[in-house]
Design a protein around this nucleic acid. Sequence first.
DNA 1: AGCACGCCGACT
DNA 2: GTCGGCGTGCTC
Length: 734
Amino acid sequence: MTEDSTDLFGDLFAKRVVPVMVPMPAPKAYSYTVPEGMAVQPGSIVQVPLGPRQVMGVVWDEEGQDAVDPKKLKEITLVFDCPPLKLEMRRFLDWVSSYTVSPPGLVARMALRAPAALDPEPMVEALRLTDMRPERMTDARSRAIAAADNGFAWTRSGLSHAAGVSSSVIDGLTAQGVFETVFMSPPPVVAVPDPDFVPPRLEGPQKSAAEELLRKVAEGGFSVSLIDGITGSGKTEVYFEAIAATLKAGRQVLILLPEIALTASFLERFQDRFGSKPAEWHSDLAPRTREKVWRQVTEGGVRVVAGARSALFLPFEDLGLIIVDEEHDPAYKQEDRVFYNARDMAVVRARIGDFPVVLVSATPSVESRVNGDLGRYTAIHLPTRYGDAALPHLGVVDMRRHPPERGGFLSPVLLNQIGKAVGRGEQALLFLNRRGYAPLTLCRVCGHRFQCPDCSSWLVEHRFRGQIQCHHCGHAEKTPEACPECGTFDHLVACGPGVERIAEEVDRHFPDARTIVLSSDLMGVKRLRLELEAIQRGEADIVVGTQLVAKGHNFPMMTFVGIVDADIGLSNGDPRAAERTFQLLSQVTGRAGRTGLKSLGLLQTYQPQHPVMQAIVSGDSHAFYEREISEREKALLPPFGRLASLIVSAETRADAEGHARGLRQAAPNVSGISILGPAEAPLALIRGRHRFRLLVHGRRNSDMQGFVKTMIAAGPKPRGTISVQLDIDPQSFL
DNA sequence: AGCACGCCGACT
DNA sequence: GTCGGCGTGCTC
């Protein structure tokens, strides 16, 4: 029959067509032909022509690929010589794409984040000792031969260094055939960690926690454990044991950390335990190092990666364990292009790969806490500090009863304690989560308020820089001397405190103390590290800092911590406001009192009875979490089926409101659409091309996804892109 | 996402 | 007269 014969004809002469995931926001993979003699399989990493350029792509699995006009088909340019993405990884990427409602190509791109050179690293030249010996033996020559006489190959410079001879000695011996040139694979980016390097001495609750965790890891297969231990309780040592066990089983380990916690001190702690550092993975890795790490992770040479959220998309050769440290940290949320929470995606990755995942935090997220309470996660508690590290004594300062003096922001109680600590030769930390000098500037004559021309939030004065800046979109201008509205000079007034202003007040009260301001906008990473080290050496008496003092570093002499305005962030419309505040304040007060010296933490607040303050001061978070959980249930699961609250944010409030109106029509069964204006909208939204962001809360993944998809389809098409973040109980993925 | 094409304002 | 701003549309 003609039909059969055309098919036969087609099969004989048509080239093989495969789907290739290309890095662009198309809804599915594109089709390409495979040239004669090229071997590709699902997962192969390839280069393909796309429009006017060549791009990297991944051969995908053939499923529901719709036919495309054969005239359009182009050929795969080349296959990179590197391991294909495993089925497990492809399923994970597909899943993330579907869950985040993002184009699969953009998700796949995250796994190929190593620039260009995907071909193997070139072999390096090395020298190996042969049986030949030189006619004339000299002292230097015998030293070189002795150093190399271990059967290993040496690089020329390495050998000359090890033997303590100049490289010309090596060259001379090579010329005489004493050394032969061999090629060896390039050196690993990091040494292989040794699980038995320095096994820890665990005691009491740490020991039983480690044993419990090791049981989960030994069982193999998917499991989620939640280590919930206060600052200083030895959580890290406990999960290091799970890492050791996984390494012994020959599998790879990923440690996820919030970017800011990826510090030298963490890497050193790892090295002390395992004898070598883990490979690092974060946004400002040198491109060359980045390639090497990527390559060696796919080939299995790198055994342990410590990385920021993007490390979750590395194509490991044989991943057997993920640790998510500081699992509650909002830095795990990517709010750019593909919106995801790495903590949640880590759970999914472990589920698909069928291995354990360990979430770790002193102040777990409400979601994880619930899953622990319900027994879906194995909850492991570490309730005490170890060694002589006593907990700080904590208290609140009721600002209505102890108001600051006029023009100031620090209560007499705080000033008194700062004075005492400094007087004893110890250090004081003042924490205020607000950069700059003052969050708002206005004209006393006409009432003009300085507003961002681009996104209309308040401009923050930065007195050290002589600028007023927008903290949402980055707009900055020189601080004007006159009011732009009425032209009056010298009548601009700063409202409210930022860290710079607090430092000024501290200076006024303690002119002889050495006061330092730590703020992310005042210094780069290098400068910050130097400052932190200087503080540890005792080169400052009073530290005034923003969020960045909350993480990582310990200050042994810090015996007083004062929170300047503990109420910041409690009323910003975010359903997680109280939770965030609790987590942040716990971290800051946790900075104090690791030395065995008596230490004190005080929170200035106008709401001393607030559950957050009560939880911090009492050290008992149980009631706080219970309340948060019930509040969350009320806010996120209204009584109309499973569709939940929806938050629309946009560049301008008017845009957000306009769009929300449309969405209400498209999805009438959604209750409470909240609208975030520019002040609350994420940075990515204002700067990027995403004109709108929908943040959808809910309980069931499938429901939320379906809902979002229909809503977008039915809703009015706004200019620009809509980005969607689903914010769901993580258990619902599984 | 990137890149080309295309159509209106201030400048070598 | 051109350079360049970003709006629109396309990529197997």
